[in-house]
Amino acid sequence: MSLVKDLTNGIYRENPVFKLALGMCPFLAVTTSVENALGMGAAATFVLICSNFLVSLFRNLIPSKVRIPCYIVIIATFVTLVDMVMNAYLPDLHKSLGIFIPLIVVNCIILGRAEGYANRHPVINSVADAIGMGIGFTMAMVILASFRELLGNGTWLNMNVLGTAYQNQPLLIAILAPGAFILLGFILGFFNILEKRKGGGQ
């Protein structure tokens, strides 16, 4: 039961982006297309699962005074792994994510889950938590990326949705930097209204 709870925790109740406002930098930067969002989500989820697994496994071995450097080295190792694998097998995606792959190291979600959850929970729960958080992060990115790609390019996952007439004159700003800030502002506002409705109904 608690395993299911761990798994679903990250998806809505403690969604890392919408509820905790963690991991904003990659979230805003790579959501120019759904494809990028999925790639980034997969990379971050992989690192999250591996680092939560190792941190939880070694939680009784790592001295608490040097735990943060230890976590960072663990995370950086897996990030390097993802970087190299992606460069070898998905060079286009690697190129479009660019600098944000090495920057997964300083993504607060991953360090936050290592410090806030994995270092005092059993391995299975930690992995479940990582999967949930990863899905929550990916989902949030796909939501924003869908808006940006649809409005800014008329496509969704490279499929033409709004027709060529729209594509000739798209709302270009959605795909440029300001679009990310403004659309995220409205999405967060929408979540605020949702929260309030829920609170008022109870």
Partner: peptide, 20 residues
């Protein structure tokens, strides 16, 4: 509904337009 973070993002977006 926009108090706090949402409006901060909207302001950042407008600044970003200026920097464009």
């Amino acid at each position: 509904a926009l108090k706090g973070k949402p409006v901060a993002f909207l302001v950042a977006g407008l600044m970003s337009i200026a920097f464009l």
